[in-house]
């Protein structure tokens, strides 16, 4: 009883949290390496072989740097803002299913922290809190570039959230459940990844995900060429690092959710083809991580390739293209569901 209700969840939380934080740190290295290779460079090479220890050096550097608070800043909000940005990104992982139930040391253990029956709604609602970190950081800095950036960020996040949530509605229509585990199971029983059922939803979700994580080509809030770094201009040291942790954690969240919704989560490719059953030798969670990695790689690839949208073009794309498409997609999904 005690073990099932307290120890195992606590252990899971601990493992997931640490894995995410380590993953985020190495995400930075991955980004630098991938972009460097795209650009005919080597990327970090000095710390450790091929620079693999670079993240550790980065962390040490950021932790030992001076934490500057501008004199005119709103101290309280200024210190809290990075945390507000980071925490929602981390607690989303509570409902991400990394794998099915497996037996471990003679005990049935589910490879997810919890399975809420409103899991998808939980993801969306928690993600919607993250915007506060950015708005407040920009406002509390009491500086003009960050303020412009935080206004951009909030407008951007709110408008893309609508489109993303709309696509999730069509996913719910397909899966018939809000639970993240349920959605993976639905893909297993319907024997198809939803990427092929809902390609438009996938596209909108991915573009919206890029915009919601403030990644290129939608990185207006931090656009260093325009707003000199945007909302974190006045930040330094560990607080600055927290914003980056949040950004990369959000990337991982979007990738993990996209994997769960569209690529069948932990399912191996072609789960219904018996001839490929040797693929089951690879543990389910490895499939999940591999698919998530593919998304993360696309994030970086896009950043290295595309120029940046302009703020008004981004808003126009969101409101005039993605949201109508998403609504049309919901309607069509509903019709198909009713008619078939």
């Amino acid at each position: 009883m005690m073990v099932d209700q307290v120890v195992i969840p606590a252990l899971k939380i601990l493992i997931v949290l640490n894995a995410v934080l380590v993953g985020v740190t190495f995400m930075v290295l991955l980004e630098r390496k991938v972009i460097a290779w795209t650009q005919a460079r080597l990327g970090p090479m000095r710390v450790g072989p091929y620079g693999v220890l670079q993240p550790i050096a980065d962390v040490v550097k950021l932790m030992t740097k001076e934490d500057i608070t501008p004199v005119k800043a709103d101290r309280w909000v200024f210190s809290v803002a990075p945390l507000i940005a980071l925490i929602p990104a981390l607690i989303v992982f509570a409902v991400i299913p990394f794998g099915p139930e497996v037996s471990l040391f003679g005990r049935q253990v589910a490879l997810y922290i919890t399975d809420l029956n409103v899991g998808l709604l939980y993801v969306v609602s928690v993600a919607s809190i993250g915007v506060y970190g950015i708005i407040l950081a920009g406002w509390a800095s009491n500086s003009k570039f960050p303020l412009l950036a935080s206004l951009r960020a909030s407008a951007q996040l709110i408008s893309y959230e609508v489109a993303v949530t709309m696509t999730l509605v069509s996913m719910i229509v397909s899966a018939g459940t809000l639970s993240m585990v349920g959605i993976v199971n639905a893909q297993e029983s319907q024997q198809v990844w939803y990427l092929f059922v809902q390609p438009l939803a996938f596209f909108i979700f991915f573009v919206g995900g890029l915009a919601e994580t403030n990644r290129a080509p939608f990185d207006m809030p931090e656009a260093e060429q325009e707003l000199t770094g945007g909302f974190h201009t006045e930040y330094s040291g560990m607080r600055f690092a927290l914003f980056f942790l949040a950004e990369y954690a959000n990337m991982i969240v979007v990738s993990a959710v996209a994997t769960t919704l569209f690529l069948g989560g932990w399912l191996r490719p072609f789960p219904n083809v018996a001839a490929l059953s040797f693929l089951d030798l690879v543990p389910a969670w490895c499939w999940f991580l591999a698919k998530t990695f593919v998304f993360l790689y696309i994030f970086l690839w896009v950043r290295a390739t595309l120029p940046r949208y302009r703020y008004d073009q981004l808003m126009r794309l969101g409101w005039k293209v993605l949201i109508p498409l998403a609504i049309a997609n919901v309607v069509v999904s509903g019709l198909v569901k009713v008619l078939l």
Partner: peptide
């Protein structure tokens, strides 16, 4: 110019 508009890769190609 490309960098200002956010296309960072062209920058390094051109410098090469």
């Amino acid at each position: 110019h490309a960098m200002d508009i956010g296309a960072m890769t062209v920058f390094l190609y051109a410098f090469r």
